[in-house]
Design a binder for these strands. Structure first.
Length: 299
DNA sequence: TCACGTCAAGCAGAT
DNA sequence: ATCTGCTTGACGTGA
């Protein structure tokens, strides 16, 4: 089990997701921003390595407007050396990487234009991971998408569109259960048709499920990961804010909840991403718990 | 230096 | 109709 946190590090004083407004776009602005973002990403990964945090989600804002038609600059070639350097650090340390395109990326949209924009966005994510020379265990996690008034039809459309994507994208996709529209059971159906592994989100599952316990859920997704190609499963974990909207992620990791989670899933090996507001602080708490003998997974 | 209106993109549910 | 959440504030103008 590797422990990680998404996108942002709050303690090292740099940001790898700096961006700018579309109307301020210029080649120079892009180069400056990306240079900053890649340098910061290297610093974050170095920090993570030092602190035994071996799982990290790279922000989708790493290259602002990468999939937008305004971007004509060949950032791939321009930053090739930097990407290779970062990839070398990741591979050398045995770190795990994920990316999570935002809610505008919809493979199953009824609108073909939205699908094509989504395809370009996914291609950008795959390129980042390819440029780092990471294998297909570095995943791009996406939700199934919208329902558009007909869930069955929308799931069929997802599968049909999936096979229209380039293999450079397909091999990296992992399907994540969401909290409203597509639950674990839906993901299992999609996974059976596409061969994509399921990235299990514990928090979403708590809000929308078809009755499976967390342990049963983990059991059911294990087989969707082809260990040789995909690596061990990835799991997103967050604790609920105790006092506020039930949607929001907690301020910090609740160790008794997390301890219980580790206990009930100790038969399985997977990497866990902690989606908690205080980011690396909670991840550090989790690493400490996992390294303590009472939570040692039985593998 | 600070306040604050606005920011590439979509969907669904609440108000 | 408009607002909010999603993984998450922060860019950039004007004073």
């Amino acid at each position: 089990m590797r422990v990680g946190y998404p996108c942002i590090n709050r303690s090292i004083g740099c940001k790898s997701d700096r961006t700018f407004r579309l109307r301020s776009y210029s080649k120079q602005r892009l180069v400056e921003t990306v240079e900053n973002n890649l340098n910061c990403l290297f610093k974050i990964l170095t920090f993570n390595l030092k602190n035994h945090l071996l799982f990290f989600r790279i922000t989708s804002d790493l290259i602002p407007f990468a999939s937008h038609s305004i971007c004509r600059f060949n950032w791939q070639d321009h930053f090739r050396g930097k990407f290779e350097e970062i990839g070398g650090l990741i591979r050398g340390a045995g770190m795990r990487i994920s990316m999570h395109p935002d809610q505008f990326t919809l493979i199953n949209s009824v609108d073909d234009e939205i699908f094509m924009r989504s395809e370009r966005e996914l291609a950008y994510h795959a390129q980042v991971l390819d440029l780092m020379n990471l294998d297909a265990s570095a995943k791009i996690q996406i939700h199934i998408g919208g329902v558009y008034g007909n869930k069955e039809e929308s799931m069929r459309r997802f599968v049909e569109r999936f096979y229209r994507l380039d293999d450079a994208i397909r091999r990296r996709l992992a399907i994540e259960n969401d909290d409203k529209l597509y639950c674990l059971r839906d993901c299992l159906n999609i996974s059976a048709d596409t061969g994509s592994p399921i990235l299990f989100d514990v928090f979403h599952h708590g809000r929308y499920n078809s009755g499976e316990s967390v342990q049963q859920a983990i059991e059911s997704i294990m087989g969707t990961w082809n260990k040789k190609r995909d690596g061990i499963p990835m799991v997103d974990y967050s604790s609920q804010m105790c006092d506020g909207s039930p949607n929001q992620h907690a301020e910090t990791l609740d160790m008794s909840d997390f301890g219980a989670f580790l206990k009930c899933t100790s038969r399985y090996d997977f990497d866990v991403m902690l989606e908690i507001k205080d980011k690396e602080k909670s991840a550090l708490k989790a690493v400490k718990a996992i390294e303590s003998p009472r939570y040692k997974p039985i593998i």
